[in-house]
């Protein structure tokens, strides 16, 4: 993991160069569409992080060994997923203001992303509100499984809802050229590596925090407190 970290930086530099300079403007949208490269990479990474959270939560419940470690990675992937979702929403809203004239529309993808954001914020809130570590691990894993099932249902319901109302904003139907595809993929990998690194770092940090806490408790115990 130590070496992967250094891969992220050059990927970001190359990705930024490709997205901001190398790829030509799209006539209808001008410069503004270039945010799309960052946006898409982050959106995919966010979905992958949430999927990782689901798989790790499943492992927390099923496996007997290494629950604590798995739980740490589950929490870290949810946190990074929320970070990426927030960035996706923010970049999307900036672009929407320029392209559609409004920061927010009730487009199925936007709405689902927002609800997903709330559901995973709930995951962190639930963890924060539980003191017992064993209980926190199991309860948050069960919650993670339930909300992961809910997200596709949310998407389906919002899509039906929107297809009933008059569609104000349609997707602009950008055709992706090979050049654009390369830029998208480079950015996607840059974000993915960054996310993996952050997840690893966060899980490690949590482990260190816990060790410090235990040592402190032991020491206080020796001192007779």
């Amino acid at each position: 993991m130590r070496y992967v970290r250094w891969l992220s930086l050059p990927l970001w530099v190359v990705g930024l160069y490709l997205a901001l300079i190398w790829v030509p403007d799209v006539r209808a949208l001008g410069v503004s569409y270039r945010i799309f490269y960052i946006h898409l990479g982050m959106a995919w990474t966010a979905l992958l992080a949430m999927t990782a959270n689901f798989v790790l939560s499943l492992l927390v419940l099923m496996r007997r060994k290494g629950k604590m470690e798995t739980d740490r990675f589950a929490q870290a992937s949810a946190e990074v997923g929320i970070l990426m979702t927030t960035a996706t929403l923010a970049s999307g809203m900036l672009w929407a203001r320029v392209a559609w004239g409004a920061f927010w529309t009730w487009d199925p993808r936007l709405t689902t992303t927002a609800i997903m954001w709330f559901l995973y914020i709930g995951y962190l809130l639930l963890r924060q509100a539980m003191d017992d570590e064993t209980k926190r691990r199991v309860y948050s894993a069960v919650y993670a499984l339930i909300i992961f099932v809910d997200v596709p249902i949310v998407y389906l319901s919002v899509r039906w809802w929107r297809s009933i109302h008059p569609v104000v904003f349609t997707d602009t139907g950008m055709n992706i050229t090979p050049q654009m595809f390369i830029a998208v993929m480079v950015f996607f990998f840059a974000t993915l590596v960054l996310a993996l690194d952050l997840i690893y770092l966060r899980a490690f940090q949590d482990k260190v925090r816990q060790e410090l806490q235990e040592r402190r408790a032991r020491r206080l115990g020796r001192l007779g407190y």
């Binding site: 609800i115 559901l119 709930g122 809130l125 339930i146 909300i147 809910d150 949310v154 389906l156 319901s157």
Partner: peptide
């Protein structure tokens, strides 16, 4: 409410 209300949005 923070957990239940977004969850039941569909």
């Amino acid at each position: 409410p923070a957990l239940l209300l977004p969850f039941t949005s569909p």
